[in-house]
Simulated scan of single mutants.
Amino acid sequence: MIEGFVSLGLLWFVAAAMPGPNFFAVVHTAVEKGRAASIAAVLGVVVGTAAWALAGFFGLQALFAVFPSAATLIKLAGGAYLIWIGIGLWRNAGASRAGRQPKVPSIGRAFLFGLSTNLANPKTAAFAASLFAVALPSGTSIAVSLLAVALVCFISLVWYSVVAVIGSTSPFQRTYARLRSVIMRATGVIFAGYGTRLMLQQ
């Protein structure tokens, strides 16, 4: 059992550490809105992770197998949302920050941004279900399975919190300020690319 949890934790960490929509959502929030908002975005990502992990554990893939149209609709909606974010980032890349009055970051909006970015990728549920099937033996109790869900959420919380703290530091902020237009356009392309790939995947 311990070996299964270690395997689950390592595989989930590797998956979380690979740059994807969640990573770029946290970094973007950190450099644009500050540390408090980026931590709120992290919490949104973690809640989304819990939702998809539970969905994967309770057989969302089996439901999709019975109702494939539901899976298609969720993929299309999630992909369209990621593309919409990407277009917005690209369009706002040229907007200068100079001379603008600083605004108090919306913690709730940052949380929803992290949550919706995570929920826009239903592939997370399939990945979680696959990991649980490999790492946990058949017949594992619900309590142990829920502990596994808590483990992946904790790993996501720690990793993305580190990303948020680094992204909101002064050196990172200064570098970002010099390259803001390029970084935002690149991030926009990444979001749109993920969304397009999600919509085209069979």
Rank of each mutant, 00 (worst) to 15 (best):
Leu73Gly: 10
Leu112His: 09
Gly56Ala: 10
Ala77Thr: 09
Leu131Ile: 10
Val144Gly: 02
Val162Phe: 13
Val163Leu: 15
Leu43Trp: 13
Ala70Gly: 07
Ala50Asp: 00
Leu146Ser: 11
Leu54Ala: 13
Ile85Gln: 03
Ser161Asn: 14
Ala126Gly: 14
Leu119Ala: 05
Asn92Trp: 08
Phe111Cys: 05
Val162Lys: 07
Thr140Cys: 02
Ala71Val: 04
Ile166Phe: 11
Ser96Trp: 08
Ala51Tyr: 11
Ala98Ile: 05
Gln61Asp: 15
Phe113Ser: 03
Ala53Gln: 00
Ser168Tyr: 09
Val66Leu: 14
Ile83Glu: 00
Gly78His: 07
Gly56Tyr: 06
Arg97Gly: 15
Pro68Trp: 00
Gly139Phe: 04
Phe67Ile: 15
Phe127Ser: 06
Ile74Gly: 06
Asn92His: 13
Ile87Lys: 01
Leu146Gln: 11
Leu89Gly: 02
Ser130Thr: 14
Ser156Met: 13
Ser138Trp: 04
Gly114Ser: 12
Leu60Gly: 04
Ser141Ala: 06
Gln61Ser: 15
Thr140Val: 03
Val104His: 09
Ser69Met: 11
Ala164Trp: 05
Ile107Ser: 01
Ala129Tyr: 02
Asn118Cys: 05
Phe127Gly: 05
Ser96Gly: 06
Ser161Met: 14
Phe111Gly: 07
Trp159Gly: 01
Leu136Gly: 04
Val134Trp: 09
Ser161Glu: 15
Ala53Glu: 00
Val47Gly: 00
